[in-house]
Design a protein around this nucleic acid. Structure first.
Lengths: 336, 336
DNA sequence: CTGAAAGCGCTAACAT
DNA sequence: ATGTTAGCGCTTTCAG
């Protein structure tokens, strides 16, 4: 059933050279003469040779794989990051090992440890385990955090402060004065960073923390309805959609009764009803940057990379200027 | 930076036995005496030993990894399958290598070949490459198709006939007589299988083929509006949501002007507006079954597994009985 | 039941 | 610029 694979030795025989020459053609082509190299490549193509990763790794070379950890692959945000990372890996001739940690810190670490021997490096998305624990992993292989900042670990993250500013500024420019902001779970760095940004701005009404998902949005909607805010910045788009659904269920409407700004700009944001105004994150670049840093780290770079990616506001129909009648809360309270 | 790992030899030294004994404790414990085994385990725990996968593989053992190929990880259906597969892998102590093929047949094969040396087996989701080409891969490692049936390859698929029957029956029971069905891209087995099911049933109006995504649904909506059907079975939920959006954009409403039945029951189906009536697929079981078959195959089983999973109808608000005024198409044509 | 010895396919010094 | 020689850490014969 399992056919014997073509080995490097087979290629060497076919090309009439020594195995180590073939190896060099593959890893350090510039050390090999043009004619020999050509002959080797011909043999490789003819035989359909593919290097054996295990052997390569064992012999001290790179394993050619990077491990990616995500809290939940069914979350469209992470799915997009994963796809970008995978593309980057392909471009570098790496393969990607994916592990879904199910949002559990313990799983995060155990998965990382299980993969440690099988990958050259890690990309950890929104990790929640203690930095201290992660440092032990960093000791074994390079690690890049996506969407989390931590001392001693390379990272690429979104500018949380800009997210809050952009969202709030957009609402204020629409005449909104009573603006709510949703807080996320404290286990996430992004939540904590956003909290700091929120406190830096005056006159914001905090809601939550609630889960950054649809259910969280629904829960938020109840509090929002009972409040007098006219606009809200959700923690992310999925949650924003939950808020919209909650308002609709209560017989209220977005943006008439509440302007909603999401965050991330996932595919669903553009096609929801109403289309969601959101602070768009460069998700693809998040993944690409992570791969870049990993590659750099694998080349031996020791610089502690801390990339911050900017965001931009995408205006759609879930926000509108505050109606004159809503500048006080009277109208709204009457309606309830 | 990279700490030297504990090797099997270290464990052997610590336990005062020969390395091969340690190896046996790990792979064939029943061949080892109780006291020795205990001593070895103690040493393993003390040293925190973890086997080196590469070496294990190279020495002829299993590599302990399975490769998963998906057309698009940002598609919630596949994301769910992947998560189920990953859980199954974890339970078996396997790791999962994920590759996104970007819906290209060529990438599918090249990814599979690139991974061939790094995995024990493959799970290919909705593959589109020629069976012939895949058979070459099967020659090297066990392969299981998810959502595609093919001669000579193990597979687990949804009962496409049941999907069509359930959806259509639901609409008919609501009094709908003019029922549309959306056809999918012919590159997918599921589309072809569904086409066969469609032709087996009388009086269905075929639409498409169109892409099984939101844009496809939008396109479909235009044709649907121009037709006299009162109910439609979409190819999947995302497309169904597109149809709903298209109707709304045209100033029409679901289910009043058209009853829409989706397929899959992704998370978004339950929380959309209106909530989507859909033919629910046991997505988790799809992934689990794939892992089961792979494991069986790796144990040396030669049975050609062909699992078919049943589906069920989840009634929600995107369908309703046909209004008396719509039993003829007059009313609708007037409205346009 | 356990020790000994021989590689798996590759890379990395070291020669030439 | 290419051939030579050792292993990497493990499993698996084969002996005892």
């Amino acid at each position: 059933m399992t056919k014997a694979a073509v080995t490097l030795a087979d290629v060497a025989a076919e090309a009439g050279v020594h195995p180590s020459t073939v190896s060099r053609v593959l890893s350090r082509p510039q050390l090999i003469g043009e004619p020999t190299r050509r002959a080797v490549h011909t043999a490789i193509d003819k035989l359909g040779y593919a290097p054996n990763r295990a052997a390569r790794h064992l012999a001290g070379g790179r394993i050619g794989a990077i491990g990616v950890l995500v809290p939940d692959i069914t979350n469209p945000f992470f799915a997009q990051v994963v796809r970008a990372v995978q593309r980057g890996c392909r471009a570098n001739g790496q393969t990607m090992l994916l592990a879904d940690t199910d949002q559990r810190a313990a799983d995060e670490l155990s998965q990382a440890r299980a993969l440690a021997g099988s990958v050259d490096a890690f990309v950890a998305c929104s990790p929640i385990a203690a930095t201290e624990r992660w440092l032990e992993v960093v000791d074994e292989a390079p690690v890049v955090f996506v969407n989390r900042r931590a001392k001693g670990v390379a990272s690429v993250a979104l500018d949380q402060e800009a997210i809050v500013e952009l969202g709030v500024t957009h609402l204020r420019s629409g005449g909104h004065h009573s603006i709510g902001v949703a807080r996320g779970p404290q286990s996430y760095w992004s939540s904590r960073a956003r909290d700091r940004a929120i406190r830096r701005l005056p006159d914001l009404v905090e809601f939550g923390p609630v889960a950054p998902d649809h259910a969280g949005g629904l829960a938020l909607a109840r509090d929002l309805v009972a409040s007098n805010v006219t606009g809200v910045l959700a923690f992310n788009d999925v949650q924003a959609l939950g808020i919209v659904a909650g308002y609709r269920a209560a017989g209220l409407s977005v943006p008439h009764d509440l302007s909603v700004v999401g965050s991330d700009d996932i595919a669903a944001a553009a096609i929801s009803d109403p289309p969601l105004t959101t602070v768009a994150a460069p998700v693809e670049r998040l993944g690409e940057a992570a791969v870049d840093i990993v590659s750099r780290l694998l080349e031996g770079s020791t610089e502690r990379a801390e990339v911050t990616l900017g965001v931009s506001l995408t205006g759609r129909a879930s926000t509108c200027p505050v109606p004159a009648s809503s500048t006080t809360s009277v109208d709204k309270e009457d309606r309830q």
